[in-house]
């Protein structure tokens, strides 16, 4: 197994009697892009705050780069992290360049990477423009730049594409993918745009009411979400034989009159093959579960 960058065990945070994070155990390996999925108030941001040291935990434990949270060396481990939690940490009265210089100084680094990082997030032309005059999207890009300037090994990004236009969203996605592939940067990312997360993440964690419902790899999720066809027929006898003739190996029988087939064939091909074995199709429906549907199924519909 790859090195664990972040591991939590029964991590909890209570505000009074309310559990914001309730016994979460999650594992993020080196090189993972971990999509953190949950509704507003589900506990995503609180967990990120605990891990980044902004909020104290109520129970459980976590390890960052193998360093337990109770160890004094956790501060050194955090030096390998870059993060945006909710809103980017920026000084409105300063320019983009001054903000990045401040970040470099805080981290005890030189300014050599400032120009490159500004270029990478598309803010190299902002010159003397102060951050207070930036659009929401520009601030978000600068926040990402500030998180990247220290060349972190682990990025924690809470809703990083908030306020970005579609082009900006694609740019951020490509930037994160490039960092992940070229530099092996591990990413923990939450976003309400689940379609965007599904294009990026290699692993998902689903959280609801402070509890981690499920952790699943992107591959496994794809298998669970893959496209299928549900056939309603007049029976199920000899269905397997028909599928064999069609060259379909992946299917499952749902009832005495229905089956789900995981293969791309034309309706007429299905009809012909089933007809040969004496079965007749009454209804055909396509079934394609995406991340959003999967999440909604996982949390039990839209009911709160």
């Amino acid at each position: 197994m790859s090195e664990v960058v972040l591991g939590t065990r029964a991590l909890s945070k209570y505000y009074g009697l309310t559990a914001a994070v309730d016994g979460v155990s999650m594992t993020i390996g080196r090189g993972d892009i971990y999509g953190f999925v949950g509704r507003n108030g589900a506990g995503k941001t609180t967990l990120m705050r605990i891990v980044t040291g902004l909020v104290s935990k109520s129970g459980g434990e976590y390890e960052l780069f193998g360093c337990p949270d109770t160890d004094a060396a956790i501060l050194s481990a955090r030096r390998r992290v870059g993060a945006i939690i909710e809103t980017p940490a920026l000084y409105p009265a300063f320019t983009a360049e001054q903000n990045l210089k401040m970040q470099c100084m805080t981290a005890g680094r030189g300014f050599s990477a400032v120009a490159d990082v500004l270029r990478a997030v598309g803010l190299s032309g902002t010159g003397s423009m102060k951050v207070k005059n930036f659009s929401l999207g520009m601030r978000q890009r600068l926040g990402i730049a500030a998180a990247l300037i220290t060349e972190p090994e682990f990025l924690i990004l809470d809703e990083p594409v908030n306020g970005l236009d579609p082009e900006g969203i694609v740019e951020v996605r490509e930037l994160l993918l490039r960092l992940n592939r070229e530099r092996g940067v591990t990413v923990l990312i939450s976003s309400h745009i689940l379609g965007e997360l599904s294009k990026l993440a290699t692993k998902f964690g689903f959280i609801e009411r402070g509890k981690l419902l499920k952790e699943i790899s992107a591959q496994d999720l794809e298998k669970e979400c893959r496209r299928s066809v549900v056939l309603q027929m007049n029976g199920i006898a000899r269905f397997a034989e028909a599928m064999q003739k069609l060259g379909v190996s992946e299917y499952r029988v749902l009832s005495q009159t229905s089956a789900e087939v995981f293969a791309e064939r034309s309706i007429s091909a299905f009809a012909a093959a089933l007809s040969e074995v004496g079965l007749e199709i009454f209804r055909v429906s396509e079934n394609e579960a995406d991340l959003e549907k999967y999440f909604m199924q996982l949390i039990g519909g839209e009911e709160r």
């Binding site: 955090r78 992290v81 939690i85 940490a89 920026l90």
Partner: peptide, 14 residues
């Protein structure tokens, strides 16, 4: 207000 203190803690400043 600007998030500077938050930013410092996040990157491991005591």
């Amino acid at each position: 207000a600007g998030g500077g203190i938050r930013g410092k803690i996040v990157i491991g400043c005591g």
